[in-house]
């Protein structure tokens, strides 16, 4: 998918967000919608401008923005744009990500989602133990024996800090009643 297509999808999603907020806000009392309505309208206008802008420019100019363009046009000759060149280079790198990166991105989202799911089911400390140990083992950063030791120490320290010192009341996870009934 081209960078432009990705940008367009994101802009449309954000547009949907602002429209949704606007629709919900219109159902509130006049004072409750006093600020949300203008802000969501502003968001819609800004995004419309952004959509038009990013589809009219050539791909390599995607990172330049209309307002920036207007305010700096007269004042920023090409040879002054040392910074902008760097940025363009960064953007260029991001614009054409290596194919493998998408897979890793999906994995990153999946790992966070998996961790949170485990957190809900097992409670904080068991899931932290499993997550950290699994991470160490799967990346083969540590030998499994060492991974267990490091993980145990880490969990012990966080437990001591949060539960003993800071007196945080633990969440026990959705599975606890099940475990208890066994």
């Amino acid at each position: 998918m081209s960078r432009r297509a990705q940008e367009n999808i994101l802009a449309c999603l954000l547009m949907a967000f602002f429209v949704g907020v606007l629709v919900l806000s219109l159902g509130y009392s006049p004072r409750a919608r006093l600020v949300p309505v203008p802000i969501s309208v502003l968001g819609i206008l800004l995004l419309s401008a952004q959509l038009v802008w990013q589809n009219l420019r050539s791909p390599d100019e995607l990172h330049v923005d209309m307002l920036e363009f207007l305010t700096r046009r007269g004042g920023r000759p090409k040879d002054d744009a040392g910074n902008a060149d760097d940025e363009a280079a960064d953007q260029g790198a991001a614009a054409a990500p290596p194919p493998s990166q998408f897979g890793r991105e999906v994995l990153a989202f999946a790992k966070v989602a998996g961790f949170v799911a485990m957190f809900l089911l097992l409670g904080p400390f068991p899931s932290v133990f499993i997550f950290v140990f699994a991470y160490f083992s799967l990346t083969r950063h540590y030998h499994w024996a060492k991974a267990i030791i490091v993980t145990t120490i880490f969990v012990a320290i966080t437990y001591a800090l949060f539960v003993e010192v800071l007196d945080i009341q633990l969440y026990h996870g959705l599975l606890e009643p099940l475990v208890n009934s066994l």
Partner: peptide, 28 residues
Amino acid sequence: EGSLLKGLVAACIGVLIAFIGMDPVTAT
């Protein structure tokens, strides 16, 4: 920097996220 439009969009999103919840002014 680089995108004032996108920067403003982000700020608008932030403002709206802050409004999630009981509005202390109108109890809505």
